[in-house]
Design a protein around this nucleic acid. Sequence first.
DNA 1: CTTATTTACGAAACCGTTTTCGTATATAGA
DNA 2: TCTATATACGAAAACGGTTTCGTAAATAAG
Lengths: 338, 338
Amino acid sequence: MSVTIKKIAKDLNLAVSTVSKALRDSHEISAETKARVFEYAAKLDYIPNPYASSLKKGRSGNIAVVLPEVADSFFSAAINGIESIAHDKGYHTMVYLTHEDVQREQSIVREFRNGRVDGVLMSIVANDEKYEHLTELYANKIPLVFFDRVCESIETASVVTNDFDSAYAAAKHLIDQGSKRIAFLSMPGELAIIKHRHQGYTQALRDHALPERVVFCTDNEDENNAIIEQLLTASDRPDGIIGSIEKVTMPVYKICHAHRIAIPYDIKIIGFSHLQIASLLYPPLTTVTQPAFEMGKAAATILFKALEKKYNLKNERIVIPSVLNVRASTHTMSIENK
Amino acid sequence: MSVTIKKIAKDLNLAVSTVSKALRDSHEISAETKARVFEYAAKLDYIPNPYASSLKKGRSGNIAVVLPEVADSFFSAAINGIESIAHDKGYHTMVYLTHEDVQREQSIVREFRNGRVDGVLMSIVANDEKYEHLTELYANKIPLVFFDRVCESIETASVVTNDFDSAYAAAKHLIDQGSKRIAFLSMPGELAIIKHRHQGYTQALRDHALPERVVFCTDNEDENNAIIEQLLTASDRPDGIIGSIEKVTMPVYKICHAHRIAIPYDIKIIGFSHLQIASLLYPPLTTVTQPAFEMGKAAATILFKALEKKYNLKNERIVIPSVLNVRASTHTMSIENK
DNA sequence: CTTATTTACGAAACCGTTTTCGTATATAGA
DNA sequence: TCTATATACGAAAACGGTTTCGTAAATAAG
């Protein structure tokens, strides 16, 4: 069996309460007793039982990170940011993957209501207005911070990037580079992140009196390949494409390569993507890059503020801007060297 | 406050023990009492307190996944595989990042000894023979399964890929494509995974009577850039390169681009990498791909076998083969079209 | 009809900690 | 000198389950 406070108390002829207080450096305990306890605890390599203390204190020391998927490099970087903060704060990080499945998100979140985690960071699944599991969290006083994909009908803190502005900037960039028929690869569902990017795209095209064209992709890779192949091989092929998320941008490259559609001559491409290796693609991909690591860190920081100080989470909203990295996939003929 | 067994017992005029047994579907309880309890518990939306039951039962329902980093796409995919199995088994997944720091790995693992997790999956940090924290785990009866990066001096189950064979195959492939001066980009430390790849490389070159050349990179990106730049701009530049891990392969591309070294004409490149988008690089990168998702799943499966059935973990070793994906970065002149 | 066994439930101990409260001794204040 | 106030510690009650054991009633065995 592992060493407990009880054993230390017995060996040292002290009461368990005395040992407990000594270990927590209580002022009720004399310096010499503390020293004795500390020394002996170190000698026995005492590690407190986390469940006993969680049970008593009503806090677990865990936070949950709920993500749609982790293969995406954005969420990998976010986990990195979150875990680094959590570890500094002495918290443990539990990771849950929803795989874009609302059912699964619900069952995962419902389990949080009885104390397994003290707080929740999440990026929600694209769904249609089923948010009871989230309001229940709130009812149970478990702080919740959204990052990236927020649910706007829940009042809590969130960390997002400037999706509208960066989508506007992306579209504007394509327009400046000479594109006239710019398509936006979207996704179905109520995701705010997609909606904002869509709106930024729309606004830019209207401001420049260009026709809008929105193509909806799906969660299925094969379906997306078919959808995009149809888009790129039709007679009214766009001459500019904005991929709203990483998943829909990669197929564009594949299909352009397969059909010998020259990037950026026949078509210019911008992707919302967090890939560091975008510059190594053929040709290097112009991206709108979200500050994933920073967003994860910021979200975790807010959550811990709420956990430590009964800080009120309502109405807080941190915006960390994305960056437009211009690369060869959107070059015009004239600056096509480099 | 949340609803407890005690409350259910009081409301139903039963003893807490009766309610507890009913909820666990004990044969000691009559069908009608069970029905009453289940119905009422469902109505009140009862969720058991995980800490109370963990404390009593001595099991947490958590597993730990300890990784050097998660930004790497290999480990992202592995987490995916692990979480999917864990979720099916009703376990929760805690993620810890060591950032290639032995100190951090040690402090993380030491905390596991008092029950926070029931089992550990890990890919170890490259270090030099400091494994007390791992043997301590074993002494505390916490099952440990290595995946990918194993510690060979600890006797436990592991899931690896066939590093020697695939490195041999990679070198052989370069030789077949005409490379004569093949360098191996290695990493310092005792990592078995690197050692095996190194050995596979060495064996292949010896079998073909070619000179070996091993270049050691570091964990620092800038240093690696400098090391590789020096390698590629020297007069005795290699005409073939094997990158032992993802981290050292990407700089090669960058530097080749910067110095107008033509891939695959001036130099052919193979990278050990899990990147799905290797085919979109310029030029498409020939890779040795580890089955990360499958390895994660296999490791988790073994761990749960140990957790559920007191299964003995010694001496088990699952090898899931890597795949050599030949792409343009190693083509010869003659087949350079495509 | 008596005894053994099963069925269905309750009482209480227990897991390892934290926390409240009580108390003996020592010190300070009047 | 007699009462307040610290000081340092112990006893015991939690926290919310699980599990062992005991027992009354019902059933089966002889």
